[in-house]
Design a protein around this nucleic acid. Structure first.
Lengths: 341, 341
DNA sequence: TTGAAAGCGCTAACAG
DNA sequence: CTGTTAGCGCTTTCAA
C-alpha cells in the first residue's frame, strides 16, 4: 500500500509538496502538481482521509439523522442533502434511527468527532443533546423540527394548514375532516399537532364546527391512511365532503379509500394534502408543495457557510417557502349538501 | 477538548490502560476500567474515531452506494443495512449517486480508505473498479447487480419473472403484456432485460406470442408506469388481459391507469408485480416478495463475517429466496376473451 | 495487568 | 514555491 512518501520519492518532490499538490491547498507550481499527480496515479495512491482529518482537524463529513429513509419526506431531504454534499466534496454519514436508538446514536456516533456537522431531520433533540453537540463545535441544523439553540429550516406548518383548510372552506365546504398524524409522531416532531392547530384555527375563524369523529389519525403512510380513511368514510353516519390530510401520502390513502366506496373525487369528496409528492400528479391531488429536496440542499448551504467561519453561535431560523398547487382533487361540495353550522 | 491523556491523569492510569479500558480490547482489571470510564464520563471525553482508525487501521464504517434512496427497493435495502450496521457499531456512509457521478464517487470517496467495505446496490461496477477496491483490501458485496469478482446477493430474476408469467398463463391468460424498465436502467443493472428474458421464456414455453406493442417500458416509478400503462391500455387496438410489471411500483401505476379507464381488477385485467411493496396490500396486488430489507441485512452479515478474517478472496454468490404472494389482482381472463395463439 | 515508546499517514507552520 | 519539522490523538508491541 503506497504512502505519500512513495509518491514523493517517485515524483522527486518533498512530502509536503505532494500533499499540497494532491489536496489542492497551498501554492504549487503547475509542473510539480503534474508530477505529483502522475506519480500518484501510477502508484494508485489516494490520500488517507483519516490521516488528513487527524492532521487538519477537518472531516469533510456530515452526519444526517432521519427517522426513516423509507418515507417520502425523509428520502427527499436525504437526496437533496446528498447531492449538495457530494458537490462540495463531503461525505454523508447516515443515521437512520428509530426512536429507541436515538440515545446510542448520539453518544456512540455523533459525539465521536467524526462528523463536522449534523443535520437532524424531524428529530426533536433535547437542549442537553444540542448543547453536547454544540460543545464539541459541531454545528447543527434541524429540518422540520424545533431545535432550541440550533439553526432550523422549517415551513410554516400552522399557516399552510390554515391555507389548506381555507381553500376547502372557500370552495363552500363546511363538512371538513382532518387526517392527522398518530400520537406516536406527536412526541417527536410535534408536527401533526401544529398542522391540526392550523386546521382548527381556520375552522374556528369561519365559524365551522370541528367534529371529533372527523378528526382521525394515521401513521403518515399511504396504507395507514387508507385504513383510517375507510373507517372515516365507510361509517354509516354522516360523511364529510372534504378531507384535509396532513401529508400527501395520507391524502393518497384517502383517495384510494374513497374510490373503494365508489366516491368520486372531487364530486363526492374533495381531498387536499401537504407535501408535493411526485405521485400527486397521478391522482390530480391538490396540495401545498414543500420542496423537500430544496430544504435538504439549503441545510447543506447553511452548514457549509457556517463551517467556513468558526460560527456555531449564529442560530438562524429559516422559514422555507411553500407553493399552493391546485389540481383536480378539490372542488365545490355536492349540490345537495346541507351546510353544517 | 479533553484528550485521552487528560483522562489518564484524572484516573491515575497510563494512556495505554485507558485506551484498553475504553475500547474494550485487551485485558484491564475491573477496577481500572471503572476508573477510566468514570474519568472519561466526568470529562465528557469520547475517543476520536479518526485517531483510532489511523492507529488501528480499522474504520468501523461501511460505504453504501445506491442509485437513489427515493425508490422503494433502494430505501428498503438501506434501512436493512442501516439497522444491522448500527447494531454492529458501524457507521454507514451513504453515496446516493446518479450515474454521472459514479466515477468521482469511486475515486474521491471510496478509494480514500475511510470505509472498511462497500455495499453496492444495483450498481454495475467494471472489473477494473472492483479490482481497485479489492486491491486496497475493501471487501465488496453487491446487491441486485452482477459484480464480477465480488460477492453478490441477488434474487433469481429470470426465474421469478418466469414464475410470474406462468402464474398468468396457468390462470388461462394468453394476451399478456410486460411492463419493463427503461433502457436507461438496462445499462446499469441489466435487471429489466433479465426479467424480460424470463417473461419471454415462459411465453415461448407455453407457445404464446409476445406482441411487441405489449412490451412497454417505464422508469420504475408509479407515475412513470402510470403514463406507460395509459398508452398500453388506452389504445384503440386490442387490449391485453393481463400485465406482468417488472416492479410493484410499476404494477401499481398500471392498476391506477386501468381504473381510470374503468377496467376492473382483476375481472377485466390481471396485474402482477415483483417486490413485496408495502402498498401492495392496499391494491390487493399479487406479487413476488423479495425481502429487500432482508437483503440489506444479509449483506452486512456477509461483510462483517468477511471482515473478521482477512478474507477478501471468498466471493460468494448468494441467491436470496423470494415468496410468491397471491392476492386479488390476478384471476382468470374475462369469459369472452378470444385466446391468442 | 500495566506502562513506555514508537508509530499510523498526513498537514501546517516555519524558514528558506 | 518548496523542504523541514513537529505534531494530530490514539493503538499497539514490548518489557516489566
Amino acid at each position: 500500500m503506497p504512502g505519500i512518501k512513495d509518491v514523493a520519492e517517485r515524483a522527486g518532490l518533498s512530502i509536503a509538496t505532494v500533499s499540497r499538490a494532491l489536496s489542492g491547498k497551498g501554492n504549487v507550481s503547475a509542473r510539480s502538481r503534474e508530477r505529483a499527480q502522475a506519480a500518484a496515479a501510477e502508484l494508485g495512491f489516494v490520500l488517507s482521509y483519516h490521516a488528513s482529518s487527524l492532521a487538519s482537524g477537518r472531516n469533510h463529513n456530515v452526519g444526517v439523522v432521519v427517522p426513516s429513509v423509507h418515507r417520502w419526506f425523509f428520502s427527499s431531504v436525504v437526496e437533496g442533502v446528498s447531492a449538495s454534499l457530494l458537490d462540495a466534496g463531503y461525505d454523508l454519514t447516515l443515521y437512520n434511527v428509530s426512536e429507541n436508538r436515538r440515545h446510542s446514536v448520539l453518544n456512540d456516533f455523533l459525539l465521536r468527532k467524526r462528523v463536522d456537522a449534523v443535520i437532524a431531520v424531524s428529530l426533536e433533540l433535547s437542549e442537553t443533546e444540542i448543547r453536547q453537540l454544540l460543545a464539541i463545535h459541531r454545528p447543527i441544523v434541524g429540518i422540520g423540527g424545533p431545535l432550541p439553540g440550533a439553526s432550523t429550516i422549517r415551513i410554516n406548518d400552522s399557516g399552510i394548514a390554515e391555507d389548506a383548510t381555507n381553500h376547502l372552506i372557500h370552495l363552500g365546504h363546511s363538512r371538513i375532516a382532518h387526517l392527522t398524524g398518530d400520537a406516536a409522531y406527536q412526541q417527536d416532531f410535534r408536527l401533526p399537532g401544529t398542522r391540526q392547530g392550523g386546521f382548527e384555527k381556520a375552522m374556528a375563524a369561519a365559524g365551522l364546527p370541528v367534529r371529533p369523529e372527523w378528526q382521525v389519525s394515521a401513521d403518515f403512510t399511504v396504507q395507514g391512511a387508507y385504513a383510517s380513511a375507510r373507517r372515516l368514510l365507510g361509517g354509516s353516519s354522516e360523511r364529510p365532503t372534504a378531507v384535509f390530510a396532513a401529508s400527501d401520502e395520507m391524502a393518497i390513502g384517502t383517495i384510494l379509500a374513497a374510490r373503494d366506496f365508489g366516491l368520486r373525487i372531487p364530486y363526492d369528496l374533495s381531498v387536499i394534502g401537504i407535501d408535493g409528492h411526485e405521485l400527486g400528479e397521478v391522482f390530480g391531488l391538490t396540495t401545498i408543495d414543500q420542496d423537500a429536496r430544496g430544504q435538504g440542499a439549503l441545510a447543506v448551504r447553511l452548514l457549509l457557510a457556517g463551517l467556513g467561519d468558526a460560527a456555531d453561535g449564529g442560530s438562524t431560523d429559516t422559514e422555507f417557502p411553500t407553493k399552493f398547487v391546485v389540481r383536480s382533487s378539490t372542488s365545490v361540495p355536492p349540490r345537495d349538501t346541507v351546510p353544517l353550522r
